[in-house]
Each structure stands twice: as structure tokens, then as C-alpha cells.
Amino acid sequence: MVKLTSEMKDGLRVPGKGGSLVYLATSSVDGKPNIAAMRYVDSYKDDKILISDMFLLKTKTNLKENPECIIAICHPMDSGRDWVFKGKAIDIEYGFPPDFDWYGIKAKEILDGWGDWHHKEPPDEVPPDVVYSKPAQRGVVVLHVEKIYSIEKSKVGEKIQ
């Protein structure tokens, strides 16, 4: 059973709060991959990673047909945060029953805590031209982490947990 370390939890926060930019990697059910960078990231309990659904398109489509998912550190790289987190993810959107369960967590606790992320942690650290003027959050992607491996130089693919 995976247990995120405190170092990982520190790294899995929004960049301006000392965290990291991450890539969210998914696939259609017939194997067409997709990858997109995500800024709003956090961890929850010991085995969940959360990402805001503000502008997800293909990622959302993929997750609705195939929950297999990867979250990997994009920036910084080669500075001790070279992790890939793999497992199953769902986009918990507004309208889900409050007691909907995803590997031991409820929709309500996720949406209450991270459902208005832009106001909770406004993006004041990114250049003005990448700040969107009016975000509209539709849900929170929750990855249940089952494996962690490395993308550290010369150790890519090595199992961490």
C-alpha cells in the first residue's frame, strides 16, 4: 500500500506555495495518450493526489472512459522531486452525491475542501499572460495512488513504492 512521504506532500502543492508544476497523463480506452500540465495540485491523506478541473477537455473525456492515470512532476526536475504517481483517478464534479466514495474518501469532503481552489490559492506567482481572467472550476480530479516510480536521471522507472 502506497504512503506519500512528507517530502512528496510538500512537493505536491501549487508552485507558489513551494510545490511543483505537474503533468497529468491519461489515455483513451483504446490507447491514445494525452498529457497536460496542471498548476492546482495538492495531496490528501496518504494516498490521494488532487487536481483542479478548470479547463480539462481530453483529460476529462479520457477519465470518464478509463480511470488509469499518471501524475508526474514537471518542474522542478532533477532536484529531488523526480516522482511519477500512478493509479486510478476520477473527476469528482459538482452534482456528485455527497457520499460518493472513491477509495475511502467522499465527494463532499473533496468539494468542500478544494471546490473553489482559485479563491483558496489565487495564482499570484505566475506571469500575467498565463493567468486566466475568470476560472470556472467544475470539479476535482482525485488520483488514488497505487505505485510510485522515479524519473530521476539514470534511475527512470525504478520503483519507489
Binding site: 503533468y23 497523463a25 480506452v29 490507447g31 491514445k32 495518450p33 488509469e68 499518471i70 500512478k86
Partner: peptide
């Protein structure tokens, strides 16, 4: 990804 959609990242 595999043919049935399991992603692998490098």
C-alpha cells in the same frame, strides 16, 4: 499507453 489504455510516462 498500452492498447487498452494503461499509461506509462518517461
Amino acid at each position: 499507453a498500452t492498447k487498452n489504455g494503461i499509461p506509462f510516462l518517461t
